[in-house]
Amino acid sequence: MSSRENQFPEDREANRAYLLASVESAADALAAGRDDSEQARRLSSTSVEALRESGLFMLKTPREVGGAEAHPVVQMDVIEAVVMIDPAAAWCMFITSAVSGASLAQLPDDAVDEVLADGFPFMAGALRTGGIARKVDGGYQVSGRWAWGSGVEHSDWVMVPVFCDDPPLIRALVPTSEVTLHDNWHTLGMRGTGSCDYELDDVFVPDRFATDLLGTDLLRGGALYRLGLPAYVVNEHGSFAYALGRLALRTVSKAAIEKKRGYLSGTSVADRQIFRRAVGQGTIRMNACAAGMAEALERMFDSAADGPPDPALATEAQAAAVWCTDEAVDVVSELFRYAGGSAVMLANDMQRILRDIYTVQSHLMVSDVGYESYGRVVLGLDPGGGLP
């Protein structure tokens, strides 16, 4: 594998500052593409190119291949910053970052060289294992259909977790040109993510592009890639949820000050005590989510310094992500009551936030099973492991 110059600082705080500056550099383009993404039901080309040029797709990529390999808490700050501009762009950013990081940590050198031959790619993928991989000479024949392919329509490569005989689960990486897309992303919210289904029909995947999904052997990268699933991605879902809550607080507060309500001599919603209470309490709740999520991640990440993370800490971190989502759903729902009649219009920002939070709360990663697993830890029982 040829060496690659790394633009990202290794120091944690310097890395954070660099990544947030990258968000700022892409902000105008992401804001400009936001409505187009919503209407087209896929991330706009303007937004895709802004994310490519900013380097934000490399958020979770190993340093050995030029990536940021950002600490999970740093990732939280970056995700929130992009959510404040465009939630759909933030979602696609962390999905491709996670797929890229997991793939490039395990792929052999020749496969990495091929993937990065034309610059850093846009990757898409799924968490839920599906399909069948049949071992053949030199690789696998893979067939199956997967859902929630966020950003897949703009991707260069697609990662699929597949059932197999030996090993029992593999992660296969294929060029998007070999994937059949299904235009079925007609949803309540998160419309701009283009998270449609995609399918492989007896596609050949060379051995160099298939890795053991349950394997612990890493060819590059540090503690981040020892976390495994779901610990590797829980920070993304937790931070996305409370960031939506904070976006709702900012949006409705601005409208409340500027807008008068009532049929005659309307008054500002901000003049109402009950609204002030909702904003104050909502802010405290979202701040608590951010702090609780970060604290759980710090301990979990530290436990992975020399090996797999402590299962109990990984389970706690997932439960924290579920909690962030539940709290955000409550806060956004309450704030929506004060958004006024204009909020029923599809183009209204508060309605879009409400639809988005209700859509992401249905994701597998923030299932109530996360609480149940953590309850086992609290009771002194084996937490189990893996996805709910």
Rank of each mutant, 00 (worst) to 15 (best):
M58T: 12
A117N: 00
Y358F: 14
A26S: 10
I79N: 08
T315P: 12
L229C: 10
I257H: 15
A223K: 09
M93I: 11
R52E: 02
R41W: 10
R376D: 07
A270F: 15
E327G: 08
G386V: 05
D109H: 12
E258K: 14
G340N: 03
P108M: 03
S150F: 01
E38N: 10
M286W: 07
M123L: 15
D271G: 01
T359A: 08
H182C: 06
A17S: 06
D77W: 02
G262P: 05
V322T: 05
P9L: 07
R246W: 01
R191D: 01
D183E: 11
D11E: 15
A29K: 14
V377D: 00
D86N: 15
H186M: 14
F275A: 01
Q75Y: 09
I353G: 09
R63H: 02
P167M: 07
R355G: 03
V360C: 06
G386M: 08
N348L: 09
F240A: 08
G282T: 03
E236S: 15
G67D: 10
G341A: 12
V99E: 11
D77Y: 05
A21Y: 12
V205L: 09
A68L: 05
V136A: 02
V279E: 06
S362G: 13
M84C: 09
F163L: 07
K60R: 13
N6Q: 06
R261Y: 15
E5N: 13
V112K: 07
G384D: 01
D77L: 11
W146N: 05
L346W: 03
R272N: 02
G101W: 04
G119T: 12
V65M: 10
V160E: 07
M190T: 08
G215P: 07
R352K: 13
C164H: 10
C324R: 07
G380F: 02
T325V: 14
D302N: 12
P72F: 00
A21Q: 13
I170G: 09
A50Q: 00
G222E: 11
G370C: 04
M190A: 14
K259F: 11
H154K: 02
C289P: 05
G33M: 11
A347S: 14
P168W: 04
N184T: 00
A294C: 07
S239M: 05
I85G: 00
D28E: 15
P206S: 00
L181E: 11
G149Q: 13
Y140T: 02
V83Y: 00
N235G: 04
G119S: 12
W185V: 03
G341Q: 11
